[in-house]
């Protein structure tokens, strides 16, 4: 994994934390939501991830007139055999970049739901399994919100991590503009296979969770549900997601057991988009607020000793 992170760092410059978290997300069988202003490397990160693992990659640009069939595929009438034939849409790839996810109308967005949750697509009473491993990397632009359909909570809940990349530091940026020419991810050669990723995912599943750590996670979750400023705390799915992310995180240290610090590391990207705050501010500001509340909460919940 360290190797992967270094490798990916060649194209995604100056963002070691986010890069590592993105890999964690993939290993934790999760989908990633990147939320940031345009031009800070969201697409680069997504494409780089796919290439590193030698996964098939497709990019779907979400627009206001995008229809579910555009991404899932459609039944096409085959004249020669005079029968309908399923033609797979761009979703049938191992890594799907759903760019500007919030520009698509709700029905298109929710067409992603089944794919993200069950790794399958049901159309016209036929269920088509998706290629494995499968991950959706959604991006959205928090600033330019006119003409967008905000993602429903149920959709947000299915993203394991929400990351925001942020602007580069001055020296990294100047290094970048000196070196970068042409296609960014082209020089990136795969250094692992899809099978490697599956093996990593298996390893993450095998990470031991001590009851004390489980209690710790539940205590934090209960904290969000009882907090004064939080309208609705996290769901059980969110707790499960947190644990699977934390298990993947434990692999970074080469451990086969989970510690409270693993939980804390993945807590903010994993939960800050799942909280519904009482103050009615939306968008990125609400994420900051949620992150702040979670940070505060984590300090209060006693760490198992």
């Amino acid at each position: 994994m360290e190797r992967l992170a270094a490798h990916l760092g060649q194209v995604v410059l100056g963002k070691p934390t986010q890069t590592r978290l993105a890999i964690t997300c993939l290993v934790g069988r999760g989908h990633l939501l990147l939320e940031d202003v345009p031009g800070v490397g969201k697409t680069t990160l997504a494409e780089g991830l796919a290439r590193c693992f030698d996964l098939t990659f497709a990019r779907i640009q979400f627009t206001a007139d995008l229809l579910p069939s555009d991404i899932l595929g459609a039944q096409v009438f085959h004249q020669a055999q005079s029968k309908f034939e399923f033609r797979a849409g761009p979703l049938f790839h191992q890594v799907v970049l759903a760019d500007e996810l919030n520009r698509a109308p709700p029905r298109t967005q929710s067409a992603l739901l089944e794919a993200m949750a069950q790794n399958q697509v049901s159309m016209d009473s036929v269920t088509h399994p998706l290629p494995q491993p499968f991950a959706v990397i959604g991006t959205q632009n928090p600033v330019d919100v006119s003409g967008t359909y905000p993602l429903p909570d149920s959709q947000l809940d299915r993203f394991l991590f929400r990351l925001s990349l942020g602007h580069l530091s001055a020296e990294v940026e100047s290094k970048l503009i000196q070196s970068r020419r042409g296609e960014v991810t082209a020089p990136l050669k795969p250094i692992a296979t899809a099978a490697d990723l599956v093996a990593l995912q298996r390893a993450a599943d095998a990470v031991r969770v001590d009851p004390a750590v489980a209690d710790y996670v539940v205590a934090i979750a209960t904290g969000t549900r009882q907090h004064n400023e939080i309208e609705r705390g996290v769901s059980t799915r969110a707790v499960l997601a947190l644990l699977s992310a934390a298990r993947a995180q434990a692999l970074w240290e080469g451990r086969d057991f989970l510690t409270p610090a693993d939980v804390r590391t993945v807590l903010l990207p994993c939960w800050s988009h799942r909280l519904m705050l009482k103050s009615a501010v939306g968008g990125a500001f609400s994420r900051d607020e949620a992150a702040h509340l979670l940070d505060e909460l984590v300090r209060k919940v006693p760490v198992p000793r």
Binding site: R208, D210, A212, F257
Partner: peptide, 8 residues
């Protein structure tokens, strides 16, 4: 310590 506490 972590091994002893959480790793069994």
């Amino acid at each position: 310590y972590l091994e002893a506490r959480f790793g069994g």
